[in-house]
């Protein structure tokens, strides 16, 4: 019983990462109805880019300076790869129907995984954890009950809340956000109002890619980096976005935390770890059956 706080905290922290990925998933779906299965790969690319720039930083640099630099680069790389994918792969087929878009997204996902398999022959990478390093700072155990939780975890929830609420502010309060919402409701009408649809879609991908890229490095500070690291978190973020109500910013945050907590609570409850990933999918199916629009989503009505 006394292990519950440990699992709750771990679940929330993991949930924060899922939420960061889910935000971009949800945003992109919200405006162009694309299920971007490559979104988890933007997270992977962010982690690789952050690690790459870390290797270039001077050896003795304080981790307090290195971490922000790494995060900035990962976010930028995530945004760049998302923007690139939008321009090269998604824009040309945007009017070709949802199936074409979905298949393209799966193709982009495979492509990015394959390309990044060329980095060090796909061997997993890890931040060094020697004294005074980023790894040592981030992986320093903080005692919780009889267990320890790595220090970096405690940055996840604040990061997800600050970035998520910032994104919500952009969507609800800025001219750009208004254009996004108009575009999601009626792209042609938005264009007639003077909204440059291509530009808004591009910027939405950039925002989503940025959040995923940042999440990639946040995880990489304590975990291995590999070409397939984005697959499962990407799927879980998709589930989170659906649970929260795809297209909704607060929904993606809530869904992310819900999926993260679920993941750890089933382990706490004694489900063998091999089956832990099953829980999220079971909940996904339940949500799709009982409340397909998700917690905060709106029921979609087919236009006549």
């Amino acid at each position: 019983m006394d292990t519950l706080p440990y699992y709750l905290i771990q679940g929330l922290c993991y949930g924060a990462i899922i939420a960061l990925i889910a935000l971009g998933y949800s945003l992109v779906y919200g405006i162009i109805k694309l299920i971007n299965f490559a979104h988890g790969e933007f997270y992977m690319v962010g982690a690789y880019a952050g690690f790459g720039v870390y290797a270039l930083l001077p050896a003795g640099l304080s981790p307090w300076l290195a971490i922000p630099a790494v995060l900035a680069v990962s976010g930028t790389a995530g945004a760049a790869i998302a923007g690139g994918a939008e321009y090269v792969a998604y824009r040309p087929i945007r009017k070709s129907g949802r199936l074409a878009a979905l298949l393209t997204a799966i193709g982009v996902s495979f492509l990015l995984q394959s390309v990044f398999s060329l980095v060090k022959d796909a061997q997993p990478l890890q931040y060094p954890a020697g004294p005074g390093s980023v790894g040592a700072l981030c992986q320093h155990p903080v005692p919780v009950g009889a267990d320890g939780i790595m220090a970096v975890n405690f940055a996840y929830v604040p990061a997800a809340l600050v970035l998520g609420l910032g994104l919500w502010w952009i969507v609800m309060r800025t001219r750009f956000g208004r254009a996004m919402r108009a575009l999601s409701q009626d792209p042609d009408a938005a264009a007639l109002m003077g909204v440059n649809v291509n530009a808004v879609v591009r910027r939405t991908f950039l925002l989503g890619g940025f959040l995923a890229g940042v999440a990639g490095s946040l995880i990489a500070f304590q975990n291995i980096i590999s070409p397939t690291m984005g697959f499962l978190p990407g799927l879980k973020a998709f589930i989170a976005a659906v649970i929260g109500g795809i297209g909704s910013v607060p929904g993606a945050l809530i869904g992310g935390f819900a999926v993260g907590l679920l993941d750890y609570l089933v382990v706490w409850a004694g489900v063998p770890t091999g089956y832990r990933d099953l829980a999220a999918f079971v909940v996904l199916i339940l949500v799709l059956v009982i409340r397909p629009q998700g917690l905060l989503g709106r029921r979609e009505s087919e236009k006549v």
């Binding site: 001219r175 208004r178 254009a179 919402r181 108009a182 409701q185 009626d186 042609d188 009408a189 938005a190 264009a191 007639l192 109002m193 003077g194 909204v195 440059n196 649809v197 709106r298």
Partner: peptide
């Protein structure tokens, strides 16, 4: 999207207002 800036407004068939935006937000768009 450049036409509005040139002074050409098109009020489309079926109104096509943005249903989830407030009246004020519709006007601002």
């Amino acid at each position: 999207h450049e036409l509005a800036g040139m002074g050409l407004a098109h009020c489309p068939e079926g109104r096509r207002i943005f249903p989830d935006l407030t009246v004020e937000e519709n006007l601002d768009l």
